[in-house]
Design a binder for these strands. Structure first.
Lengths: 340, 340
DNA sequence: CAAGAATTGATGTGCGCACCTCAAAAATCG
DNA sequence: CGATTTTTGAGGTGCGCACATCAATTCTTG
């Protein structure tokens, strides 16, 4: 039989009450008692029964995901995964919650964070926009005891908050490697499209992309980034101009999560099948593109995994445990038609 | 507050005892009572508190992983992951266990399975070799109530057992796509090396590989599979012969999990940097190969994920629940130097 | 050394459920 | 109809722990 707290008390030569004090960091315990208990824990291999702990505490975890209001297919996918997780975790005393706010307005975001009641939530996972205001607001939220996860995006990493998501520099580098190897020896230009280059994510991806192209595929020439700002008409116009001025486009790299608008635009003026196309994130659109041959590769981070990982991290932090680094790292996936 | 079983009883207009009978499938319950309880469950949104269930049942899950004795780096990785999981799950009432047996002897494997005491284990996860004997032994084990997971390998899928691992046909196809696109337009031969072609895994990968090469990259010519049988000297000799007879080898595909022996052999007779090399599974060797440029891509399935997935499935089955398909599917990962 | 402070012990309660027993009520049957 | 059989109810116990209370013991410190 597994040793219980009672066994532990006996092994430590102390009473159950003192053992309880040590186990739960209660006040009025002598250092000597702490030592004795810890030693006994090691000796008899005591592990708290998490089921009993959970039952006795009888409190549930309250977490909130804060996502943007604007977005397209990937956002829909994310919302879907959060909802899925919500239902799955309902039984495990995890109460999930999603709100969507205009994430590109740092002022409003900061205000939103300031208004969060620390007694209402144990943890917040958020796609945080880049801004000193927001960073400070996050800092204050953390000081009020709310666990914070930077979700998929945002900020030069805060040392006090956890981050869930991929290394965007590496993601960009991976895209570049694929484009370079797929295009082959022949020279050509690479068209790079983003929703916006304002975000740190885009900048990092572009950086990783350029570094690999310059060092390994210098026969390719990267064109300046095109920004769509989520506007289909505008995107289409710009793309037309650029594609007409550059006949030798050998590849297109869409570095934002939403590839539909730029690619549907580009498809009107060029044959995507003939050029190498790499985009980010798995969505119904990018999946179809892979199957059709319009997209050659997708660089993805599994949104379901990301959501679960964020939850695990918030739960661990709430319990004052360390998260399991390995399991919670998000991989940069490379999707081809063959391994969908 | 979350509704408890007591609330449920009240809502159903029955006693706690009857509700308990329904919830736990005990005998002597009228169909009417079952209906009333289920209706009430829907109505008030009752969810059993898993912590309380676990505490009250107070039984732990006993699972065993059965792995091969022979292997190299990937096997070591697997063992490491199982051990890691063992420590991590210890707290969650999961008792793990690993044994290694000579997996290529179907007779011994069948005998081993027959000797397993169904009172000693709730679930077995095994890399099962291909054989009618073994298949029957698995079937009998399942009939005795032991949950069985086909782990990473083996058997035309049994309908009564779960499978954890990748689709090997797709994995082979993915390798072919990468090799085809990386090699480019120029014609050449593809050297294919396996530990053995006896296993279903190897056959399926080869099949997927050939299909993609034939349909999309017909300028490439696949050479007959070379089998190493884990013997370095022998592998080296065969490789030397084949490489001397075929100057135009443009790519090498190692389709077994262990790439070290064949690649170290091939490296003596050819410059791996100049040809496209694709192997399976992430190991210290294949990682180094990627960094050095000796390997261009690794097709991998995350062993840690596989282990956790197998455990989740066995646990769900033991509780008579359905596993969460999405989370437990193992992805075919494509690793490049850039996304390690 | 006495008074106060810090530490420890003994004991009880409750978390939500599984599992058991015994009696009561209801349905079935000859 | 009475005699079974089936179904329900009432109640208790325990799982391992958190948390609270109050008394008893030890340690400080002036």
């Amino acid at each position: 039989m597994r040793p219980t707290a009672k066994d532990l008390a006996e092994a430590a030569g102390l009473s159950l009450a003192t053992v309880d004090r040590v186990l739960n960091d209660r006040p009025n315990v002598s250092p000597k008692a702490v030592r004795k208990v810890n030693e006994a824990i090691e000796r008899i291999g005591f592990i708290r029964n998490p089921a009993a702990v959970s039952l006795a505490r009888n409190k549930s975890y309250r977490f909130r995901f804060v996502l943007p209001t604007s977005g397209d297919l990937y956002l829909a996918e994310l919302l879907h995964r959060v909802e899925e997780a919500r239902l799955n975790m309902k039984g495990d005393l995890v109460d999930l919650d999603v709100v969507q706010i205009a994430i590109d307005d740092p002022h409003r975001v900061a205000k939103y964070l300031a208004a969060i009641d620390e007694n209402e939530f144990d943890g917040i996972a958020m796609m945080a926009p880049e801004s000193p205001q927001v960073r400070d607001a996050i800092g204050r939220l953390i000081e009020r005891g709310v666990k914070f996860v930077q979700f998929l995006s945002g900020q030069e990493k805060l040392p006090t908050a956890d981050f869930v998501g991929v290394d965007n520099y590496a993601a960009g580098a991976t895209a570049a490697k694929i484009i370079g190897r797929f295009v082959g020896q022949r020279a050509g230009k690479v068209l790079i499209v983003a929703e916006t280059m304002q975000s740190l994510d885009s900048i990092e991806r572009r950086l990783g992309f350029d570094d690999v192209v310059n060092s390994q595929f210098s026969h390719l020439q990267c064109l300046p980034s095109i920004e769509t700002h989520g506007d289909a008409r505008r995107a289409s116009q710009i793309l037309q101009r650029v594609l007409e001025n550059n006949q030798e486009v050998a590849a297109i790299y869409v570095l934002s999560s939403e590839a539909r608008i730029p690619l549907e635009g580009a498809a009107s003026f060029t044959d995507l099948q003939k050029i190498t196309v790499v985009v980010h994130e798995r969505t119904p659109f990018s999946e179809r593109g892979l199957r059709d041959g319009n997209i050659d590769a997708v660089i993805a981070q599994d949104p379901g995994h990301a959501v679960r990982s964020a939850i695990r991290i918030m739960r661990a932090r709430t319990d004052l445990r360390e998260p399991h680094a390995a399991q919670d790292k998000i991989r940069i996936e490379v999707l081809l038609k063959e391994n969908l």
